[in-house]
Simulated scan of single mutants.
Amino acid sequence: MREVLFLRQNQAKWREYESTPARTPEELANRFIELTDDLSYARTFYPDSSTTAYLNALTGKLHQALYKNKSAEQGRFVHFWLRELPLLVARHHGTLGVALLFFVLCTALGALSAALDDSFVRVVLGDQYVNQTLANIERGDPMAVYKGANESVMFLYITVNNIKVSLLAFATGLLPGLGTGTILFRNGMMLGAFQQFFYQKGVLLPSLLTIWIHGTLEISAIVLAGGAGLVMSRGILFPGTYARRESFRRAARDGMQLVLGLAPIFILAGFLEGFVTRHTEMPLAASLLIIGGSAGFIIWYFILYPRRLHQQQTKAFPVS
């Protein structure tokens, strides 16, 4: 990126940081992180520039202010969940939307394939699972598969496995689009075939009321992890005005923060699958409350709240 363009993109922000004190210690810490990123970039590409000297001085001032008040580190965890992660999500809403659209198309393709070919379900889900589920349906308890294992063991196994899948979905973003796309494709096909199988056996509603108790959070988090992988892929393929290496560094950092932010969701989904989903006899209202609450949280925290924060930030710091 040419220095004049680098200045044009960031000068208003630097002036704001220089003239307006941070309102909270957390905001001061966030400004310091952004300035160190800008200073690192300037030192790399404009080592003898006045821009680099200016950024070095401004970063030094923020460093002194930051470490004069040690409480800047307090509340950092809360700040990440209340502001940093939602704003990061808002910044990449388009890419995350692409991941969701692709996953929905793959799910529809999986359902269609299962509807046209009865053997497809066995290919995707495996003979053992299909045979066990058929036996459970004949006994009048189609969701009995969730009752077999010990609750704690099931919770730990599922949580660890889901986190592994999310990290893999992100890491394979290094293979621009292909690795992450493959994981989203596989999971979407499995979900579509899975639900079509229960539809064909006449137990779609019981499956929906049971599986989506944990699946609402689990599937949403897998799609978001895939979106994080696509964020990294986009940084590699479309660097824009940045050098490709710098674009990749920024995209990888954003993607990793997104994936790490999903860990509590996977833990909660694992808890629900291990301890709650097995109670297939629970009242309809309880199932709907859990599913609706989970869906409401995903929509609010990953769509509505990030948009509102982004709009507030844009009004507070308009681009000149």
Rank of each mutant, 00 (worst) to 15 (best):
V145T: 07
Y146I: 02
A149E: 01
A149F: 03
A149D: 01
N150S: 13
E151D: 10
E151M: 06
E151H: 03
S152R: 08
M154P: 00
M154G: 03
F155V: 00
F155Y: 11
L156E: 01
L156T: 02
Y157I: 07
Y157V: 10
T159Q: 04
T159R: 04
V160R: 14
N162M: 09
N162K: 09
I163R: 05
K164A: 14
S166D: 13
A169V: 09
A169C: 06
F170L: 13
A171I: 12
T172R: 07
L174S: 13
L174E: 02
L174Q: 02
L175S: 08
P176M: 05
L178Y: 12
L178I: 14
G179T: 09
T180L: 11
T180W: 10
L184H: 08
R186E: 10
R186F: 14
G188P: 03
M189D: 01
M190C: 02
G192I: 11
G192C: 05
A193I: 07
F194D: 02
Q196M: 15
F197W: 08
F198I: 01
F198M: 08
Y199D: 07
K201L: 00
K201T: 00
G202D: 00
V203S: 08
L204I: 10
P206G: 09
S207Y: 14
S207F: 15
S207N: 14
S207T: 05
L208K: 01
I211W: 12
W212M: 07
G215D: 12
L217V: 01
L217Y: 11
E218K: 05
I219K: 01
S220F: 11
A221H: 06
A221R: 01
I222T: 07
V223H: 07
L224Q: 05
A225C: 04
G226T: 08
G226C: 05
G227W: 03
G227F: 04
G227Y: 04
A228L: 03
G229D: 06
V231W: 01
M232E: 00
S233Y: 04
S233A: 12
S233D: 03
R234S: 12
